[in-house]
């Protein structure tokens, strides 16, 4: 055993020397201090309260918001549920008209972009039309115990939807949620709904002249939206890890804000793409 400890200690040294950690001394000290506070890690209830949500199942926090329509997002007006549904039908080239209440927008926050069974969708945001309101519900895992509840609730909503709308969801979000579901033995709810992935549409019609085809870019260029104090998506994994390992949930509010704005931008982008002229012409010529 002594041999092993010696070996592991050496491994630790080598790993630290080799690892690409960019943690400053301050962060490291912070972690050390936090580590000793682990006894007093905040509960899920406390976290929920700080986020303006509620614990709806062990380890699962839910936040719900409502946005009355019409809603202005950037320079786009999301006029009504019917308008969004028409847009979804047109963009997705669906033959049967889409009822507004059967539309579901989806965006996830994950622990990484590599995919594979080790990536976790720790937060999922869904948005749907309820009369003249856009409802946005987000679920956040306060721990792994909350994953089943999250996937169950997502599945219920998805099963009741006919058209799913996402940005890169076909390649990333949906396969990830399917994988997570499979790991806990639940069947995929994604088989019946049609999927309109705005990444593809954006690439086809709007992309000319943009540096890339990310949602942020589409947002800035087409929606003329400027986010204030946004936590970049790339920092979401770290924010959740800090909560898990050290009980520091300070950044999670901003993660959820980011996710909520993503959903609104998704809706706005969809609204924008309803009008054929705007769908086909590069928006660079449009008035600001």
């Amino acid at each position: 055993m002594r041999d092993l400890q010696v070996c592991l200690a050496r491994l630790r040294e080598k790993a630290q020397a080799r690892a690409a950690t960019d943690s400053s001394l301050a962060e490291r000290l912070g972690r050390l201090r936090l580590a000793s506070d682990r006894q007093g890690k905040p509960t899920a209830e406390a976290l929920a309260a700080s986020l303006g949500g509620t614990v709806v199942a062990p380890g699962l926090i839910e936040l719900a918001r409502s946005f009355p329509l019409p809603l202005r997002h950037g320079r786009v007006d999301i006029r009504s549920g019917k308008a969004l549904a028409r847009a979804a039908q047109a963009v997705g080239r669906l033959t049967v008209p889409v009822a507004p209440h059967s539309l579901l927008l989806l965006d996830t926050e994950t622990t990484g972009l590599a995919g594979g069974t080790g990536t976790v969708a720790f937060a999922v945001g869904l948005a749907w039309i309820d009369g003249s309101t856009l409802r946005v519900v987000q679920w956040l895992m306060a721990g792994f115990a909350g994953e089943r509840g999250l996937l169950d609730r997502v599945a219920t909503r998805v099963a009741g939807a006919r058209v799913l709308v996402s940005f890169n969801g076909k390649s990333f979000d949906v396969p990830l949620l399917k994988a997570r579901g499979r790991l806990i033995g639940r069947p995929s709810p994604f088989e019946s709904a049609a999927h309109v992935d705005l990444l593809h549409t954006t690439r086809r019609f709007l992309h000319a002249g943009w540096p890339d085809c990310r949602l942020r870019t589409a947002e800035a260029q087409a929606l003329r939206l400027e986010r204030v104090n946004d936590l970049p998506g790339s920092e979401a994994p770290m924010a959740w890890r800090r909560w898990l390992s050290h009980g520091d949930g300070d950044l999670l509010a901003r993660v959820l804000d980011h996710n909520r704005t993503d959903l609104l931008s998704l809706a706005a982008l969809l609204a924008l793409l309803e009008h054929p002229t705007q769908r086909e012409a590069p928006l660079l010529h449009a008035a600001a």
């Binding site: 622990t111 990484g112 972009l113 590599a114 995919g115 080790g118 994994p237 390992s245």
Partner: peptide, 9 residues
């Protein structure tokens, strides 16, 4: 249980 939480592959 021990869960993977890093963002690496």
């Amino acid at each position: 249980r021990w869960h993977w939480i890093a963002d690496s592959y």
